[in-house]
Amino acid sequence: MSATTASATGDQHTLTEKQQRILQYLRENADTQTYFKSRLIGDELDLSAKEVGSNMTAIKNSDAALDVEKWGYSSSTTWKVTA
């Protein structure tokens, strides 16, 4: 798979493998959870919090049918995710 990030049009097919893994995790958990810490997502997906955070912008800008908003910064960036 190409290592390109999401395009300006938000085409989901341009998400990297890491971004797709994060997106899948968010989709699976967004029904029961609203706030996600980068550190905890990383723990679940064997990624660092920094890797998660740096890929969330592409997910936010993609056509993923999820609203992603940077929410807080204490002890790890928190993301508000709604379907």
Rank of each mutant, 00 (worst) to 15 (best):
7 S>F: 05
8 A>R: 15
8 A>K: 14
9 T>Q: 14
9 T>L: 10
9 T>G: 15
10 G>S: 06
10 G>E: 05
10 G>K: 14
10 G>M: 04
10 G>I: 01
12 Q>Y: 13
13 H>D: 13
14 T>N: 07
17 E>R: 09
18 K>N: 06
18 K>T: 03
18 K>F: 09
19 Q>T: 03
19 Q>G: 02
19 Q>M: 01
19 Q>P: 12
19 Q>K: 13
20 Q>I: 02
20 Q>S: 12
20 Q>H: 10
21 R>V: 06
21 R>I: 03
22 I>P: 00
22 I>D: 00
26 L>W: 03
27 R>F: 10
27 R>Y: 10
29 N>K: 06
30 A>N: 02
30 A>P: 03
30 A>C: 04
31 D>P: 04
31 D>K: 15
32 T>F: 09
34 T>H: 09
35 Y>A: 07
35 Y>R: 05
35 Y>M: 14
36 F>G: 00
36 F>S: 00
36 F>N: 00
36 F>I: 02
37 K>M: 15
37 K>A: 07
38 S>E: 01
38 S>Y: 06
38 S>A: 11
39 R>Q: 07
39 R>V: 04
40 L>W: 06
40 L>K: 02
40 L>E: 01
41 I>P: 00
41 I>R: 00
42 G>E: 01
42 G>W: 13
43 D>K: 05
43 D>W: 13
43 D>L: 15
45 L>F: 08
45 L>A: 02
45 L>T: 03
46 D>G: 09
47 L>A: 05
48 S>N: 04
50 K>D: 15
50 K>Q: 12
51 E>H: 14
52 V>C: 04
52 V>H: 05
52 V>E: 01
54 S>P: 08
54 S>Q: 12
55 N>I: 07
55 N>H: 10
56 M>D: 01
56 M>H: 06
57 T>W: 13
57 T>G: 04
58 A>K: 07
58 A>L: 08
59 I>N: 00
59 I>R: 00
59 I>C: 02
60 K>N: 06
61 N>F: 13
62 S>F: 14
62 S>D: 05
63 D>A: 08
63 D>H: 11
63 D>L: 03
64 A>L: 12
65 A>K: 10
66 L>F: 15
66 L>Y: 15
68 V>L: 07
70 K>S: 15
71 W>I: 02
71 W>K: 03
72 G>R: 05
73 Y>L: 10
75 S>N: 11
75 S>Q: 08
75 S>D: 12
75 S>P: 07
76 S>H: 12
77 T>A: 13
77 T>H: 06
